[in-house]
C-alpha cells in the first residue's frame, strides 16, 4: 500500500521521521518522536498510525507508551503487538470522510484534549 508523497511530507511536521512498516496486509506509518498535545505526559513518544480499518475502527493511532493525558481515556488495547513492538491505544473513533493522513493524525491527537 502506498500513500501520497505530499501527505507523508505533511506528517513530518508532527514528528522527526516517517517510516513505513508492513505487517500482514496493513502498511503502518511509524512516526518517530511524535509530538503530543499540551498537557500530555510524556510530551513526545513514537506513534504508529494505522490509516485503514482495524479492530472495528476506521483508523487507529498506536503509541509506544501509555500516555497520561489531561482527561482519562479508555485504553482498550494495552500492549498491542505490531511490528514486534508493544503498543498502546485508547478508544477513539475518527469518522472523517476520506481524510488526509495529517487530518487523520490530528483527529486522533485531538482525542487527548477533549473532555469526553
Amino acid at each position: 500500500m502506498e500513500y501520497p508523497k505530499e501527505q507523508i511530507e505533511d506528517l513530518k511536521g508532527y514528528c522527526s521521521k516517517v517510516r513505513a512498516a508492513k505487517e500482514g496486509e496493513i502498511t503502518y506509518l511509524y512516526l518517530e518522536d511524535l509530538r503530543l498535545p499540551a498537557g500530555c505526559t510524556p510530551e513526545v513518544c513514537d506513534g504508529l498510525l494505522c490509516p485503514v480499518a482495524r479492530d472495528g475502527y476506521p483508523s487507529r493511532l498506536f503509541l509506544s507508551v501509555q500516555v497520561s493525558p489531561p482527561y482519562p481515556r479508555n485504553w482498550n488495547v494495552s500492549n498491542a503487538r505490531i511490528g514486534e513492538k508493544n503498543w498502546y491505544v485508547f478508544s477513539w473513533r475518527v469518522n472523517l470522510v476520506s481524510p488526509t493522513l495529517v487530518q487523520m493524525l490530528v483527529a486522533h491527537l485531538t482525542g487527548f484534549t477533549k473532555e469526553k
Binding site: 500513500y3 508523497k5 507523508i8 521521521k17 516517517v18 517510516r19 513505513a20 512498516a21 508492513k22 505487517e23 500482514g24 496486509e25 506509518l29 511509524y30 511490528g83 514486534e84
Partner: peptide, 17 residues
C-alpha cells in the same frame, strides 16, 4: 494464504519515507 507474504518473514523492515 493472501494475508501473509514473504516480506513478513523476519524482523520488521522500516522503510524511510
Amino acid at each position: 494464504c493472501p494475508h501473509f507474504s514473504e516480506s513478513d518473514v523476519g524482523d520488521p523492515v522500516l522503510v524511510e519515507l
